[in-house]
Design a protein around this nucleic acid. Structure first.
Lengths: 156, 156
DNA sequence: TAAAAAAGGTGGTAGAAAGTGGTAATTCGT
DNA sequence: ACGAATTACCACTTTCTACCACCTTTTTTA
């Protein structure tokens, strides 16, 4: 991968046409990949996720292996790919959010970007706060499992 | 690791742009790492935590292994990484606090730095005092639980 | 069905805001 | 009082925002 693990939380604003400018902090981290392709998709939670193409390919390789004659598999694949779109940065480092996706995530004028594990999640500020204000129910258990050396229990 | 375990409590002041100068006491302890990268993140309490990059990498290496198709894992990773950003000292040994993080910790003009276990916690003076005063737990009992070999109660 | 109108998308830019770098002035400890 | 450390500024650069102009596609209407 030509870019390092992405990090950071940014607040951006959409223009009248639903575009946002990629914050320079992320541009720097993306490095050469700035001019490459991205895939934007609905997240499992009420957010959108932006993947640099190589990350997307890695993530979806497993899904693409699934046997689609299996009904469950087919359902999952369809659910996962619903609305995934390829996007690129324009000459002013902007991305146009597909309308239906923005609506799905209740993103209107302001948006929070939060990057981790090679991906960029996009949230409406309201939804983001909702998620972040309360720590996950079993957070301390998980922290113990993941960080406390209690390996067996952590789902890997 | 090229720096010794960090120690000390410092009060610093932010300039108009939200920057603070790393106290010389910490600079000395950081040694060669002064010119390296740091990661700043929200802490579990209402504070921020600054990690020298090697420390951060060690902590996050396990998190980056998690399977993010697992809902619990995803919640944990997102919560853990919320806002983590890479920062460096500028030529005058200053660090610019990301705005959203400063707000999270109610850090405005003054800030307390407290170092231990290879990391530096950053507190608003008000929150810091609150946390230190309210200490309802009998410290010696806690010490016993954590360090006294009374394992059953410690990991909670 | 064609013309007109509206909506959606692309590209660019000026002014404002935020970030960066430097340094003079002040404080602090010895 | 002196040097080191810290704080408070100022000047400059980059980034961000809010537009406008134009092109393309879709919808409406005569």
């Amino acid at each position: 991968m030509s870019f390092k693990q992405l990090l950071g939380e940014y607040e951006v604003r959409l223009d009248g046409k639903g575009r946002f400018r990629m914050p320079s902090g992320l541009l720097t981290q993306l490095g050469d990949w700035q001019r490459g392709n991205f895939v934007i998709n609905r997240g499992f939670e009420k957010c959108l996720v932006l993947y640099p193409e190589p990350v997307w390919n890695e993530i979806t390789s497993e899904i693409n292996e699934l046997n689609l004659y299996n009904k469950k598999n087919r359902g999952f694949a369809r659910y996962f790919f619903r609305g995934a779109s390829e996007v690129t940065l324009d000459s002013a480092d902007r991305i146009l959010l597909p309308k239906r996706l923005a609506e799905y995530a209740s993103i209107d004028k302001d948006m929070i970007l939060t990057a981790y594990s090679g991906r960029i999640e996009m949230w409406s500020p309201v939804e983001y706060d909702k998620w972040m204000e309360e720590e996950p129910v079993d957070f301390s258990d998980l922290a113990d499992e993941v960080l406390g050396g209690n390996k067996e229990k952590a789902a890997e």
